[in-house]
């Protein structure tokens, strides 16, 4: 009797484990294979992002014109309150340039290294303890950082450069996002960071018509992100939701006005001689569309309207205070 009971108990247990639905206790069923995967950490950026308190004392858009990139970077930031409004002594600051392609700086497909170098130096002057520079190009990161001149400029200015490697990505939660509610994110450079600054070139884009400061955050995503091209405006709206930066810098020192985002010919690049600083990346992009890409007579890219309607900012810079300075 004892044997029969033992055999029966084991059989019943095995039957339960094998046949019980996957959400029942002790069930071994895993029809999708998902239960067998390890539970990944799910992280979130700080509530409110990395933004500082709004100020009515300063312009919303600081626009500096000139030829001296160093002066333009300082001028644009000074116009929106100066770097000390944004960075406190001892803070760690992450700067996200656009290093998406293996192109020389003059071709306009990447952030200009001189603009990046000037920005790093300004941030250090505010007392930052560390400045990090990070991007996740789909092309070879090493080649992109080297050929664009970004790596050299960053290192010479004293920043640490973070190139992506497989262990650097974590699942980021972005509540309310359509495509990236949970998506791999280039996390390692963000550990311990207090402030985040984006610095992006002004580029024509084959799919979304213009790539500027909002589209720039695309370079922090991992995974098979090319699939987002099917809804490019939707994903850029998600990026505006994901990242609330401390401020952004629009690098309009030269403008890739055709054959973007890759470019290649100097005939497709014109001098913009402008740097724009703002806490409102949608407005900075709208200004870039009108004044740098010179497309004021064309409809704005749909993502600007979609992000504005989602309450993520307001692209209409005509409602904002602009401070424009002409430098040497």
């Amino acid at each position: 009797m004892k044997q029969a009971g033992l055999v029966g108990g084991l059989a019943a247990g095995a039957g339960w484990a094998a046949l019980a639905p996957s959400d029942w206790p002790l069930s071994l069923k895993d029809p999708t294979g998902e239960l067998g995967k390890p539970k990944r950490r799910q992280l979130a950026l700080p509530e409110g992002g990395y933004a500082v308190a709004p100020s009515k004392l300063h312009a919303d858009l600081g626009i500096a014109h000139g030829v001296d990139m160093n002066a333009m970077v300082r001028g644009a930031i000074d116009a929106i309150g100066g770097i000390r409004r944004f960075v406190n002594p001892g803070e760690i600051v992450l700067i996200k340039p656009n290093v998406a392609f293996e192109r020389a700086a003059a071709l306009g497909a990447t952030t200009h290294p001189e603009v990046l170098g000037a920005l790093i130096r300004v941030v250090f002057e505010a007392g930052a303890s560390e400045v990090r520079v990070a991007d996740n190009p789909i092309e070879s990161p090493e080649s992109c950082f080297a050929k664009s001149g970004v790596q050299r400029a960053a290192v010479e200015a004293g920043a640490r450069v973070y190139l992506p490697s497989p262990g650097d990505f974590e699942l980021l939660s972005t509540p309310g996002a359509k495509w990236i509610e949970r998506w791999p994110f280039f996390w390692r450079p963000f550990v311990g960071v207090h402030k985040v600054i984006g610095v992006a070139p002004v580029k024509d884009h084959n799919l979304c018509h213009a790539s500027m400061t909002t589209k720039n955050w695309y370079g922090l995503l991992g995974g098979r992100r090319n699939q987002f091209h099917q809804d490019i405006h939707g994903i850029i709206t998600d990026l505006a939701r994901m990242m609330r930066p401390t401020f952004v810098l629009l690098d309009g020192t030269r403008v890739l006005f055709r054959s973007g985002p890759t470019g290649g010919s100097l005939d497709d690049v014109r001098s913009g001689q402008t740097v724009v600083a703002s806490t409102n990346s949608l407005a900075a992009d709208a200004y870039g569309w009108d004044a740098l890409l010179l497309r004021k007579d064309k409809d704005k890219p749909a993502y600007l309207g979609m992000a504005t309607e989602s309450g993520l900012g307001d692209w209409d810079y005509s409602k904002l205070v602009l401070e424009e300075v002409q430098l040497g």
Binding site: P38, N136, P164, P166, G167, G222, R225
Partner: peptide
Amino acid sequence: GGQADPDLFSAAPGQVQR
């Protein structure tokens, strides 16, 4: 199974050597 390398599930074109 609980300690598996997370990279097994996060292979991304930008992260891995192509």
